[in-house]
Simulated assay, not measured.
Amino acid sequence: MICSAKGCRSQAVWQLLWNNPKIHTPDRRKVWLACDDHRESLSQFLSVRGFLRDTVPIDDRDTLDE
């Protein structure tokens, strides 16, 4: 699994769980993957827009819902 940051090819170790409340139901979660280097910048991008719901290590979930 590769980090979702543009141009990054590093292995992802974090899942950023998010949704856009204007278009997604409250229980829907989209997933961006992040390496340690991009976790903060991707989280900040989602947080500023009010989209970030949770950040969890990849090992905490059995499957990715994208």
Rank of each mutant, 00 (worst) to 15 (best):
I2F: 12
I2V: 13
C3T: 03
C3Q: 03
C3H: 06
S4F: 02
A5H: 13
K6N: 14
K6Q: 15
K6V: 13
K6E: 15
K6F: 14
K6C: 07
G7T: 03
G7M: 05
G7A: 01
C8Q: 04
C8I: 06
R9G: 15
R9F: 14
S10K: 14
S10C: 11
S10V: 04
S10T: 10
Q11C: 02
A12K: 09
A12H: 01
A12S: 12
V13H: 10
V13R: 14
W14Y: 12
W14K: 08
Q15D: 08
Q15L: 11
L16K: 00
L17H: 08
W18H: 06
N19Y: 01
N20A: 02
N20H: 01
P21E: 10
P21S: 09
K22M: 03
K22C: 00
K22R: 10
H24C: 05
H24K: 00
H24W: 00
T25E: 09
T25W: 06
T25N: 00
P26Q: 05
P26V: 03
P26R: 08
P26E: 04
D27Y: 11
D27L: 12
D27G: 10
D27P: 04
R28N: 00
R29G: 02
R29Y: 00
R29N: 03
K30Q: 11
V31A: 08
W32K: 07
L33T: 08
L33P: 00
A34F: 04
A34E: 04
A34Y: 07
C35D: 05
D36M: 09
D36G: 05
D37S: 12
D37C: 02
H38A: 00
H38P: 06
H38I: 07
H38N: 02
R39D: 01
R39Y: 04
E40D: 13
S41M: 11
S41W: 01
S41D: 09
S41C: 11
L42G: 05
L42Y: 03
L42W: 07
Q44G: 11
Q44A: 12
Q44M: 12
F45Q: 13
F45H: 14
L46K: 11
L46G: 07
L46T: 04
L46N: 07
V48D: 15
V48R: 15
V48S: 11
R49W: 06
R49T: 04
G50T: 05
G50H: 07
G50M: 06
G50R: 06
F51N: 04
L52R: 13
R53D: 12
R53V: 14
V56R: 15
V56S: 08
V56I: 13
P57D: 12
I58L: 15
I58C: 12
I58P: 02
I58T: 13
D59P: 03
D60K: 15
D60H: 15
D60P: 03
R61C: 11
R61G: 02
D62K: 10
D62M: 10
T63E: 14
L64A: 10
L64K: 13
D65M: 09
D65H: 12
D65Y: 06
D65P: 11
D65E: 13
E66A: 12
E66C: 06
